[in-house]
């Protein structure tokens, strides 16, 4: 298992290096001179030259990339000050360190995605299992059609409706906001409750359907029948034999969804005016803030790769046949 993890982690690392190289190239693929972007309003040729020199834009690309990678490991010095490792550069817009900006936004994104994850996994798998166990009954049909309705909805549609109903017209709840869990756990919880549920409802639908169909398939497996023929009880066989196998496709989409969410739940954050990584990514792109864009992309890629490693480990845990390969 350890060797398996080391192998997966090292290949993830190689991919990350490749991604960093590609992201680095957006500096040069951008439609405008980075120096102009960094320069601000009252820009002169002389100022641009200084900036180019400062950013090292006159150096060969390979050297610039090397400096960037070195900065991630060792830190770098800029005209605005020292940038400690891991240094992802300085934002053109705010002159703040990219890494610090990201770290500042990260707790919200983590809270939002992990909280939502707990809700949609519980609801989705629960409903899916129930529908599979009661296949063909009214319960199954209700759950299935509900999940079809929700999966065809969008957060930016459902979000405002829920906000309108619970916040603006009735005042039952306050507007979603983020308070660090360390400061006020209850405020953290109530502040994110609406975004969690709206996000979860839409994801739940997908997990309900996936879990239902995967479970129905597993229940027809021969080894499930063998377990029944051994005298094991129906619930035991349902959870120990069938459920375990049904988790494999679920873990697959879960890994992708979680990676994407951690890299920024853009629509959710925008809908509920929450400032997380997703919001940061949108701002970075609209302002053509190249260092920030790169930083957000790298962080997103790292999350997706990490989730992939976790998914691989989960496969190996669930299905021993994967462990040897």
């Amino acid at each position: 298992m350890l060797r398996f993890l080391i192998r997966r982690l090292s290949s993830a690392f190689v991919i990350l290096i490749l991604i960093s190289a590609f992201t680095f190239l957006i500096f040069f693929a951008a439609p405008r001179d980075p120096a102009v972007l960094a320069c601000g309003k009252n820009c002169t040729e002389a100022a641009k030259d200084i900036i180019r020199d400062n950013l090292g834009l006159n150096d060969p690309i390979a050297q610039q990339y090397w400096e960037f990678m070195r900065g991630i490991v060792m830190g770098r010095d800029f005209s605005v000050g020292r940038c400690d490792a891991p240094c992802l550069g300085v934002s053109f817009n705010t002159d703040l360190m990219v890494w610090d900006t990201i770290v500042d936004r990260l707790p919200l994104t983590l809270s939002l995605s992990l909280g939502g994850l707990v809700i949609f996994l519980t609801l989705g798998l629960g409903a899916g299992l129930m529908a599979a166990a009661k296949k063909g009954t009214v319960t199954d049909k209700t759950l299935s059609s509900m999940s079809l309705v929700f999966s065809s909805m969008q957060i930016y549609f459902l979000g405002p409706i829920v906000l309108g109903a619970l916040v603006f017209s009735s005042g039952i709840m306050e507007s979603p906001r983020y308070v660090p869990i360390t400061e006020d756990p209850l405020g953290w919880f109530t502040g994110l409750l609406i975004p969690w549920f709206v996000m979860a409802l839409i994801f739940t639908a997908q997990y309900t359907r996936m879990s239902r169909s995967s479970m129905i398939e597993q229940l027809q497996e021969e080894h499930v029948r063998t377990a029944r023929a051994k005298g094991m009880s129906r619930p035991y066989v349902f959870f120990r034999y069938a459920w375990r196998g049904s988790l494999i496709p679920i873990v697959t989409i879960l890994g992708m969804d979680l990676g994407a969410l951690l890299g920024g739940a853009i629509v959710t954050e925008m809908t509920f005016s929450l400032a997380g990584i997703g919001r940061l990514a949108v701002d970075a792109v609209t302002n053509i803030d190249l260092p920030l864009t790169m930083g957000v992309m790298l962080i997103g890629a790292t999350f997706i790769l990490m989730c992939n490693v976790v998914v691989d480990a989960a496969y190996a845990y669930i299905d021993p046949r994967v462990r040897l390969g």
């Binding site: 021969e222 023929a229 094991m232």
Partner: peptide, 30 residues
């Protein structure tokens, strides 16, 4: 009664044994 007084041997042992548990565990269970 199943697995105790009456037991069944299935046709294809590859699909009839669970891939997720050790042989020992599957024998121990009943």
């Amino acid at each position: 009664l199943r697995g105790n007084k009456m037991a069944m041997i299935f046709q294809d042992p590859l699909t009839a044994l669970s891939p997720f548990y050790t042989i020992g565990r599957q024998i121990m269970e009943p």
